[in-house]
């Protein structure tokens, strides 16, 4: 039963990773950009929520809406003000520009908030749980996180398949120049994709901030988890990222169970195993 509990905890953790992964995958899908500042943006969102909670004295879950909006606007601005130009310069330049931004964000946060760990206090919900048996206990908050992740992915899927802007995203992902010929302004579209990705990342950032603590240096590891979830799930597959996140979450929890402190390493090793034996990921998109 201990194993069952571990797997459940891993699945719940996977929901969190999927929230990070979906944004990374979206940006890559639409504009072929791997945003190395992705994790740092999620930490930035958590600090944003922290500031709002501190100044308005509200539950962090309310601050989430504000954080999403601000991160969305920020995403649009940085895409149009910097990343679009970097992408014009070349794919390598684009990666390096995001790397520069990652370092800037990390150090600005360090300057503004010190290296001390902070946490978001969401009150009673954090400790509430459902006891299924003596050994299987499901926390309400992790469960909510997973449900939110599923809802976000579902929303994203509906957005991509049913709306005009969503179809423009997919058309651009397929063939950017042809999309231009349909009257789609790719620079604006890239801005919107980054805005959407950072709004999603804000959800992840605030949720992880409630779940555990965070510090300015937490970003890189989140980028790595998001990335591993994407690769495990398979490039270009939306639901694959959820499965990838869950596989990673379960691997980490089980790894920690076998030997305390080995969770992250086991997660990495599972990722490498997938890379070695199924490099297209578990759910690679058929069409290409």
């Amino acid at each position: 039963m201990v194993w069952v509990n571990d797997i459940i905890q891993g699945v719940l953790l996977g929901g969190l990773y999927a929230l990070f992964a979906a944004g990374l995958a979206l940006v890559f899908g639409v504009m072929r950009l791997v945003n190395l500042a992705h994790g740092d943006f999620s930490v930035m969102a958590a600090y944003l929520a922290l500031v709002i909670v501190g100044s308005l004295n509200v539950n962090p879950l309310y601050s989430l809406v504000f954080a999403m909006i601000v991160m969305g606007i920020f995403g649009y601005a940085i895409q149009r003000g910097l990343f679009n130009f970097a992408m014009d310069a070349g794919p390598m330049q684009a990666i390096l520009a995001t790397f520069g931004v990652a370092i800037i964000v990390q150090n600005l946060l360090l300057e503004g908030f010190t290296a001390n760990s902070k946490g978001l206090d969401a009150g009673r919900i954090e400790n509430a749980f459902i006891r299924i048996s003596n050994q299987v206990v499901i926390g309400w908050f992790p469960l909510i996180t997973l449900l939110v992740a599923v809802a976000v992915l579902l929303g994203l899927q509906i957005f991509l398949s049913r709306t005009r802007l969503g179809r423009a995203f997919r058309a651009t992902a397929d063939n950017q120049r042809a999309a231009q010929l349909m009257g789609i302004d790719n620079r604006h579209l890239y801005g919107m994709a980054m805005a959407l990705a950072l709004a999603m990342v804000a959800i992840g950032g605030v949720f992880i901030g409630i779940r555990t603590t965070f510090s300015p240096s937490a970003g890189p590891l989140r980028l790595i988890f998001a990335y591993e979830a994407v690769i495990i799930g398979g490039l270009g597959s939306l639901w694959g990222t959820l499965v990838g996140g869950i596989v990673l979450g379960v691997a980490q929890v089980l790894g920690d169970h076998i030997q305390q402190g080995w969770g992250i390493l086991v997660g990495h090793l599972v990722f490498l195993a997938i890379l070695a034996f199924r490099p297209q990921g578990l759910f690679a998109r058929q069409a290409q």
Binding site: F28, R32, L33, V34, N35, L36, P91, M92, A94, I95, P220, L223, I224, Y227, E228, I231, L235, I264, L265, H268, L269, F271, L272, L275, A276, P279
Partner: peptide, 23 residues
């Protein structure tokens, strides 16, 4: 392992492997 990935994914891939060595 890393050469199975391209561009930005290669970049992060090499980083993960470096992390594995560190851990």
């Amino acid at each position: 392992l890393a050469f199975r990935l391209r561009g930005g994914y290669f970049a992060v891939g090499t980083w993960v492997i470096a992390e594995v060595y560190r851990l």
